[in-house]
Amino acid sequence: MLTQLKENIVYPEPKKQNIIIEVNELNVYYKNNHAVKNVSLPIRERSITALIGPSGCGKSTFLRTINRMNDLIPGAKCQGEIMYDGINLLDKKIDVVALRKEIGMVFQKPNPFPKSIYENIAMPLKFAGIRGKKRLNDIVEESLYQAALLDEVKDRLSQSALSLSGGQQQRLCIARALALKPKVLLLDEPTSALDPVSSAKIEDLLLSLKKQVSLAVVTHNMQQAARIADQTAFFYEGEVVEYNDTSIMFTKPVYKKTEDYINGRFG
């Protein structure tokens, strides 16, 4: 597999974690727009992969392709290979509904349903076939605990989720995704709509979640990538310019463009 990857990707040595999702030569088109160009990238197990780059560089599109959210956009076309658990996720026989339960997603803007806090987490569980009040309660509580939200909301689970603050709403969205016990969690700029204090809480949360799930985070914020990510990929105009261990990437970037971006010279 390694030979297929583009040569400008320098592999961190030694590899600490196994690869859980391996993307090979992925191309995504929106009608006339070639949004993702020949991207090959691994996502490692139990670690955080940050995707950075200027806006419109294809990193969000790339993220949405992994759990097939791009299917919803008319005119979107994907080519290539996203290997996960021995199968190509772009195959048409893939059950996208089952796939999205295993590879969860959290969006830029917190988007809880206009229902109670409890229902926000319990409803997807019910549709996933989990029955029994006791079991549901346990999972809701556990995922709220994992999302570091339990203490703040345990007395008002029946209140509307929209009464929570923005940061709490985002943690609820993460809890909601965690309740389905995903293997991978994709986060699309999860803190960009939040204030610094709430952002810091989400960052802590992501670091603690690393023990159970693999995370891929799109972020605009370079410091955030440096703080939380194990590996970082730099996207530019639909291509991956550089992929490396975060520590190496932010101290000794191989490419000039990466260095310029990290130092804030453009983007």
């Binding site: 759990n67 959210m69 919803l72 509904v97 089952a98 796939l99 999205r100 339960k101 969860g104 997603m105 959290v106 969006f107 803007k109 988007n111 809880p112 349903f113 206009p114 229902k115 409803m123 997807p124 549709f127 996933a128 969205c173 909601r176 995704a177 389905l180």
Partner: peptide, 27 residues
């Protein structure tokens, strides 16, 4: 109903029909 409600339903592994019935219609 905001588009992100649709996306969040689908991203949680709900089918389109479930998303309509349980997320969009109530909203």
């Amino acid at each position: 109903v905001p588009q992100d409600q649709r996306l969040s339903g689908l991203a949680l592994g709900l089918t389109k029909w479930h998303t309509i019935k349980k997320v969009l219609l109530p909203a």
